Simulated scan of single mutants.
Amino acid sequence: MLQVLYSGETRELELSGARPELLALGQLLRGKAGSYDLSENRHPFPYERSLSEIAFREDPEGDTASIVAEDEILRIQGGREALDLLADNIEGFASEADAGDHCHVDSPTYDYIAPASDPLVIAFMK
């Protein structure tokens, strides 16, 4: 089970789940397009709301990955190399991190993330 929480004030997103689900999401992002239904969190504090879906697609002309909350959907799109780097980060975190760890994936920390992207935090579900 994965969840994505969103703060409208900071535009920050938190993607969290158990190791197997985060690893599966990384593999899914290596495809051309797809979606993943998310678990609803009725009490997303300190975030404002819980999103219902991750939708992604490869953009053959893109050279960065865009990560944006749009309504109730986390939309990810980008060039193949950028999506693979995002998948690598998610899988690396899921494989190596300890239970209390988290990882920030944003621009300018990572140059493969589009500057207009919402800041993303990857964490294990509590």
Rank of each mutant, 00 (worst) to 15 (best):
G17F: 03
Y110Q: 00
L29I: 09
P44D: 02
L74K: 02
D59L: 00
I122Q: 07
G17N: 05
E72K: 15
I54W: 01
E81G: 04
R42T: 13
Q77C: 00
A82V: 10
P115H: 02
A123S: 12
N89F: 01
G31I: 08
E9G: 07
Y47D: 05
D37P: 03
G17A: 07
E48S: 09
I54V: 12
E70F: 10
S35L: 14
I54M: 07
S52V: 11
M1H: 12
Q27A: 12
L13M: 15
Y36T: 15
A123E: 05
E96D: 02
E14T: 14
R57S: 00
R80A: 12
P44Q: 09
R11E: 01
A69I: 11
D106R: 15
G17I: 10
P60T: 12
A18T: 08
G31T: 14
L86D: 06
G92T: 15
L15I: 07
G62R: 04
G78P: 07
D118C: 06
D84Q: 07
L13E: 13
G17R: 01
L86R: 07
Q3R: 11
A82W: 04
E61L: 06
L29H: 03
G62L: 12
G31F: 02
G26V: 05
L38M: 03
D71L: 09
I67G: 05
M125D: 10
D71H: 14
H102L: 11
Y47I: 01
R75C: 15
K32P: 00
N41V: 06
A65M: 14
I73C: 02
A94H: 09
Y6S: 13
C103Y: 08
G100E: 15
S117V: 13
L85W: 08
G79N: 12
L120A: 04
T109L: 11
D71V: 02
D88I: 06
H104M: 14
G8N: 11
P44N: 08
M125R: 13
S95I: 11
L22S: 05
S107P: 02
R57T: 01
L2Y: 14
G79S: 06
R30P: 11
A55E: 03
L5M: 03
S39F: 10
I90P: 11
A123P: 04
K32H: 01
I54L: 03
L120Q: 11
E96F: 07
I73Y: 07
L83K: 01
I113K: 01
A65N: 02
D37Y: 04
H43W: 11
N89Q: 15
A97M: 01
S35I: 10
R19T: 13
V105E: 10
A114M: 11
A24H: 05
R30M: 12
L15S: 05
Q27D: 14
Q3W: 10
L13P: 02
N41K: 10
